[in-house]
Computed example of a mutant assay.
Amino acid sequence: MLRPLLLSVVLPFVAGAGLAGGTHAVEQEGAVLSAADASRVAAFDILAAHAHREGRLVTFHMTTNGTAGAERPEPVGALGGAPVLSYVWPTSLDPATVGFEGGTGILALAATSHPDFDDTPLFDEDGDGDPANDGTLWHSHWVVLTPTEACGAGALGVRDIPEGATPAMPLTWPGLPIYIDSPGYTPRFDGPEITLTVPFADADAVAGAAYDGVTAALRVNANIHAPLLCVTDVFDIASGDLSLPGRIE
Rank of each mutant, 00 (worst) to 15 (best):
I237F: 00
I224P: 13
D160P: 11
R247G: 06
Y179W: 13
E249R: 08
T166L: 11
G240W: 00
D45H: 10
R3C: 08
C230Y: 05
A96R: 03
P183V: 14
I161F: 06
A108H: 03
R188M: 11
P227N: 08
G22I: 00
A165N: 06
W89G: 02
V84I: 15
A226V: 10
I161G: 09
T64E: 02
A17S: 13
A153C: 00
V234I: 09
V26S: 12
C151A: 09
A217M: 14
V234N: 01
R3H: 13
M1D: 12
A111L: 15
A216Q: 13
A108M: 11
D190G: 12
R53N: 00
P174R: 09
Q28A: 06
A132K: 13
P12F: 06
F123T: 14
S239M: 06
T232Y: 03
C151H: 08
G22T: 00
P90G: 03
L218P: 00
N65W: 01
I180C: 12
T215K: 11
D241M: 00
H114M: 15
V58C: 05
Y185G: 11
D134F: 08
P121M: 04
P177Q: 03
F235W: 07
N223R: 12
G105C: 05
T136G: 11
S92L: 09
A70R: 07
D241S: 10
A217Q: 14
A36T: 04
P75N: 10
A210C: 13
E163G: 14
G81Y: 07
P131T: 04
A110R: 14
L57N: 04
H24D: 08
I194Q: 14
G246T: 00
T112I: 13
V158Q: 02
V220N: 07
T104V: 11
R56T: 10
E27M: 12
H114K: 14
T64M: 08
I161Q: 08
R72C: 09
Y87V: 01
T197L: 11
L171A: 15
W173M: 10
V198D: 01
G105M: 03
F235N: 05
G55T: 05
T195C: 06
T59Q: 05
T91A: 07
D204F: 09
L2A: 13
A165D: 14
G103I: 06
G55W: 05
G80Q: 00
L6S: 04
Y179A: 06
A216N: 05
G103N: 10
T146M: 02
L33K: 09
D204H: 05
G30M: 03
V10F: 12
